[in-house]
Design a protein around this nucleic acid. Structure first.
Ligand SMILES: [Mn+2]
Ligand SMILES: [Mn+2]
Length: 274
DNA sequence: GCAGAAG
DNA sequence: CTTCTGCAACGCTGC
DNA sequence: GCAGCG
């Protein structure tokens, strides 16, 4: 329990458990009924890590979902959240869809990966995506990934298949890339990205996952994937300011800015006519 | 972090 | 008994 | 077909 997980910051496994206990109320709606991919760091962020999807053994009060011979953990309540954290799971990477409607994602994801590009460029790309979606009256929501990029979600209300979601994401990504070719790219090859922000729309596949809102990341300062207001997405935004420690001030002030992502979905047919 | 296999 | 090992996966893209 | 990518 006192095992050090973040050596520099002297954050312990106990602190991690405490964090997830406190944030449970906020994160659980984003995890419930979703097959989970756990990213585990049993020896802290400087130790070996691995993803785990297949849960071979677990107490019977932990719910799992068998999908293609893989027994996925589902984090349905505080107990199972702490069960995962106790396994050294720092990062939670849930499916975009829920069991019962597994083939229908609740949202589209644009995953902005800067690699060598500056965060300032990431902000510009995010704003452009927001503008393009605004123009066709499609609501979108932004969060820090907790690492170096941003995630933009478009709620779909589980009305469309992954294929439709991905094709929509691809269409928007191509429009955006054309508008700002100097700073954005759809190039999958790292060497060809060259200081540009990668607009990754390929995450919109069944079985693909991204870090959940309010998931901690195994990086210095224990940053948290943090939902933002669009007016905060501007030059000067510092994604590392949102951490295990500081997130609760925001939650108190703004509540869950990502709650709408789970609610009413966009009407893509209508949007594409605009 | 833990089960199961290998040594 | 102690020590080692695995623990995601899959669809796409471009050579 | 194979490697890189996330
Ligand atoms: Mn990313
Ligand atoms: Mn990505």
């Amino acid at each position: 329990m006192d095992k050090i997980y973040w050596p520099k910051e002297k954050i312990t496994k106990g602190d991690l458990l405490l964090y997830y206990e406190k944030v449970a109320k906020w994160i659980l709606p984003h995890l419930k009924d979703r097959p989970e991919s756990m990213r585990r760091f049993p020896d802290g962020i400087t130790g070996a890590s691995f993803f785990q999807k297949n849960l071979l053994q677990h107490p019977d009060w932990v719910e799992t979902a068998p999908i293609n011979q893989v027994n996925y953990l589902m984090i349905q309540n505080e107990e199972s959240l702490l069960f995962a954290a106790n396994l050294g799971c720092i990062e939670l990477h849930p499916f975009l869809s829920r069991v019962g409607k597994l083939k229908y994602p609740d949202y589209v994801i644009f995953d902005l990966d800067p690699k060598s590009a500056s965060f300032e460029k990431v902000i510009e790309v995010a704003k452009t995506i927001h503008d393009v979606l605004d123009e066709i009256k499609v609501p979108s929501y932004c969060k820090t990934s907790g690492a170096t990029g941003l995630h933009i979600a478009v709620p779909l209300g589980a009305k469309y298949t992954y294929d439709t979601a991905k094709r929509f994401a691809e269409l928007i990504a191509k429009i955006v890339q054309k508008k700002i070719p100097q700073i954005s790219t759809l190039e999958r090859s790292l060497s060809k990205r060259k200081g540009k922000v990668y607009i990754d729309y390929h995450q919109n596949n069944m079985g693909q996952t991204i870090a959940a809102a309010y998931s901690v990341r195994a990086r210095p300062k224990a940053p948290v994937s943090t939902p933002l207001k669009w007016e905060e997405v501007k030059k000067g935004l510092d994604p590392t300011a949102f951490t295990m420690k500081t997130i609760f001030q925001r939650l108190k002030k703004f509540g869950d800015l990502f709650a709408p992502v789970l609610k009413k979905g966009a009407n893509l047919e209508l949007a594409l006519k605009n």
